[in-house]
């Protein structure tokens, strides 16, 4: 208890010290813009200004794969107001998480639940009171991927960009509020940086929520993707935190088990059909082979061919006349002939 107290005091003392070290820091953001001199560097923390004490617990159940672990790590690096905890046992009931949050002094929670070592579910929850939402997470790309070329300060505050669809339907509106409260870093958070240099984008396409993270490079809104990426497929929204009455159920959601089963069935059906066709062919072949018993009346109308008189040739037949040109003689023979003819003359 005492240790915690001392710690809290220390944490409080540090920002004050820093603020004193850079006294012109709090004044400097008054002149934003191109003058990148050291005077314009604002202090990372302003004393007494950190009002929004939002803390997010990010952790998972046991049995997550490496990709999920990386994603979790990435979220922790990007969200300075997050806290980590040990993995939860799979057999623990979900409402235990509320107590974990309380212990960790967090009021929001991102919980990754892995099932069957292949399906990943994500819970977003407002810890003691609710609401909470459960999503299926698909298409995960982490920060470690080389395709995403952007970079941002660790712990800088993100802009949150939402699709206009979020305002149109009540369940999306609730989700939007949840996203804002969880993903936006509180201003003047001690671990945060004073610059806004990246955007989290929540977009709705194909009845799913697509998450992207872009770096703001220029003032004319040139963006480069930083990562991570993932797609959230909403399953249910509950009134309580990790439980309670269901407020919304996604009609477009198909569980991965069902999806796999359907694909398997489709493959099986194809196979079955092929086999049936094969069997049918076999059957037909067999059918064709059935020997028809010989019909004794079939030869009734057959007339035997007239017999030819036997003929024996006693004289050699005349040789055929060759219609082709006479064979050309060799040169030697031709000369001989010439000579003979000359002699004859």
């Amino acid at each position: 208890m005492a240790a915690a107290k001392r710690k809290r005091g220390g944490a409080a003392a540090r920002p004050r010290k820093r603020a004193r070290a850079a006294p012109n820091g709090s004044r400097s953001p008054a002149e934003p813009g191109p003058q990148g001199a050291e005077h314009s560097v604002p202090a990372p923390v302003s004393k007494g200004k950190w009002k929004n004490k939002e803390r997010v617990l990010i952790f998972s159940s046991r049995g997550i794969n490496f990709r999920t672990r990386h994603l979790m790590q990435d979220l922790r690096t990007l969200m300075p107001h997050s806290k980590a905890d040990t993995k939860m046992d799979r057999k623990d009931k979900l409402f235990v998480i509320n107590e974990v949050c309380e212990i960790k002094n967090c009021n929001k929670c991102i919980f990754f639940e892995a099932k069957k070592k292949q399906d990943l579910y994500m819970w977003l929850s407002n810890s003691p009171q609710g609401p909470s939402a459960k999503f299926l997470v698909q298409n995960i790309h982490t920060l470690a991927e080389l395709k995403m070329t952007g970079n941002c300060l660790k712990g800088s505050r993100p802009l949150l960009s939402f699709d206009p669809v979020f305002d149109k339907e009540p369940h999306y509106a609730l989700l939007k509020e949840l996203f804002i409260q969880i993903f936006s870093t509180p201003q003047y958070h001690p671990k945060s940086q004073p610059f806004v240099d990246h955007v989290f984008t929540f977009s709705i396409t194909d009845n799913r929520i697509w998450f992207r993270n872009y770096q703001i490079i220029e003032e004319d809104a040139t963006l480069v993707e930083i990562g991570p990426r993932f797609v959230l497929n909403l399953i249910k929204i509950f009134q309580g935190s990790f439980g309670g009455p269901t407020l919304y159920e996604n009609p477009h959601y198909q569980s991965p088990n069902m999806h796999r089963r359907l694909t398997r069935l489709a493959v099986a059906a194809k196979f079955k059909e092929k086999q049936q066709v094969k069997e049918l062919q076999k059957f037909r072949k067999k059918e064709e082979k059935i020997i028809i018993p010989e019909d004794p009346t079939e030869i009734v109308f057959e007339t035997p061919a007239a017999e030819k008189p036997l003929e024996i040739e006693l004289v050699k037949p005349e040789p055929k006349v060759n219609l082709k040109k006479k064979k050309k003689l060799f040169q030697r023979q031709r000369k001989m002939q010439k000579k003979l003819s000359r002699v004859g003359v």
Partner: peptide, 15 residues
């Protein structure tokens, strides 16, 4: 008055 550009001589840990 929230800065959006990090000055070139501002060094901090990146993501």
């Amino acid at each position: 008055k929230v800065p959006t550009r990090r000055p070139d001589d501002y060094f901090a840990e990146m993501a």
